[in-house]
Computed example of a mutant assay.
Amino acid sequence: MTAPAFTVRAVDYEAGLPALRHVRETVFVQEQGVPLALEWDELDPLCHHVVAVDADGNPVGTGRLTPNHTIGRMAVLSDWRGRGVGDALLSALVDQARQRGWRELSLHAQVTALGFYARHGFLPVDERFVEAGIEHQSMRTLVDADNPVGSREAAVAAALGVIAGARRQLDLYSRDLDPGLFDVPEVVAAMRRLATSGAEIRILLQDPGEPRRKLAPLVNLGQRLPTAFAFRAIEEPTDRVYPSAYVVNDRGGFYFRPLGHRFEGETRLDAGGRARQLRNAFDPVWERARPCTELRALQI
C-alpha cells in the first residue's frame, strides 16, 4: 500500500502560526506535558519555519531554524510518524541553512531521538541535560564538510549514520570488531535492519580470534544471517601493518579512524569521492584475505 502523500514547505511565522500551533501543542504540550509557556518563545517570530502538510493541506509536522543556527521544535503528529515526515522536515531545514551559507548547525535532541538525528549526520557533544522535564542531548553537524569524531558517543552516532545510509553494501575494516562500538545494541540493531533489507555486509578483521572469544554480537548476527554477512581475515604482512579502521557505505557515507584502536576520526554521509576511495582500498585487501571459516562454523 502506498503511504499517504505529504509535502514540506517553508512558511511565514504569522501566516503559518495556526499550523505550527496545531502540531506543536498537540505533540509537545498535550502528549509530552511541556508547559504551554515554555513551548513558545521570543525566537519564534525570528525563525525560519517549515511545515509538512498532507494531501488535503492539513499540517502534520513542523520544524524551525533559529538565527542562532540551531534546529528545533521538530514535531510530527502521531499518525504520521514512521512515514518519513521527520526526515523530510530535517532535510528541508538543513537545505535552508545551506542556502544561507551556514556551515554549522546544532540542536537539542530528546534522548529517544538520537538515532534519528545520527542518520542525518548529527553527532552528540557535551553531557546530557534535562529541558522541560525531558532528557536531552546537544548534537552538532558541519554542513557539506567532514565532521570530527572525538568520543565514543560520537563514534556510535557516526556508525549509525553510515549504516542507516547504506543501500546495497556496507564495508567494515576493523582490528577486532571494536568493543564499545560495534557491540552497542543500537549499532547491532542497525546492522540487523540493513542485513534483512537484502544488503551485503563485508567485514575485514585483523584479529578474528578476539571477537570469537568474546562472543561479539556481530559474529552471532552473522551466524544467523549468513547470506548477508561475510567475514574475512587479513593475513598478508603488508596489509596487517595498516593502522586505520573505517566503515563505508555505497551512498557516500564513511566513518574513518586514523588509528584503528581509537574512536577519534572523521565522518560524513555525502562524500562520494572519499567513500569511493575507501571502497577501492577495501576491495584488493578483501580479495587477498582468507574467509573466516572459524567464525562461520562457530556455534553460539
Rank of each mutant, 00 (worst) to 15 (best):
F122G: 07
L89I: 15
L298F: 11
P179K: 09
G101W: 13
R98Y: 04
F229P: 00
D283K: 13
E135H: 08
A216Y: 00
A3I: 04
G273L: 04
T141S: 11
A75K: 01
I163P: 11
D171P: 00
F231E: 03
L278R: 13
E287R: 15
F129P: 00
G84I: 10
T7Y: 01
D146L: 11
G252H: 06
P217R: 01
E25M: 14
L259E: 04
V94W: 04
L77K: 09
A132C: 14
A297H: 14
A281V: 06
L43I: 12
F254M: 09
V143L: 15
A245N: 09
E210S: 13
R152F: 01
V50N: 03
S106P: 00
A164I: 01
R279P: 02
Y173D: 06
R268C: 09
V23R: 03
A52W: 02
E200L: 13
G260Q: 08
L170P: 01
E104C: 07
D144Y: 05
E235G: 06
H120E: 01
A97M: 09
R213S: 14
A228K: 07
D270W: 11
Y255V: 07
R175M: 04
V125L: 03
R193M: 07
P35V: 15
G121R: 06
E294D: 15
R175W: 08
V27A: 06
L194H: 07
L89D: 06
N280V: 00
A155Q: 04
L278T: 10
I201S: 10
T7W: 01
V60G: 07
G61I: 01
A10W: 00
L225M: 05
A158P: 04
R251M: 12
A189C: 06
I163M: 02
V11K: 11
A281L: 13
L89M: 06
I234W: 06
G33L: 04
Y255D: 08
R100H: 08
D207T: 15
I71S: 01
G16T: 13
H120S: 14
F263I: 12
A190W: 07
V111Q: 12
A199H: 14
D54H: 13
V162Y: 03
R168Q: 08
V125F: 07
D270R: 14
L38W: 11
G63A: 10
R103T: 14
H69F: 13
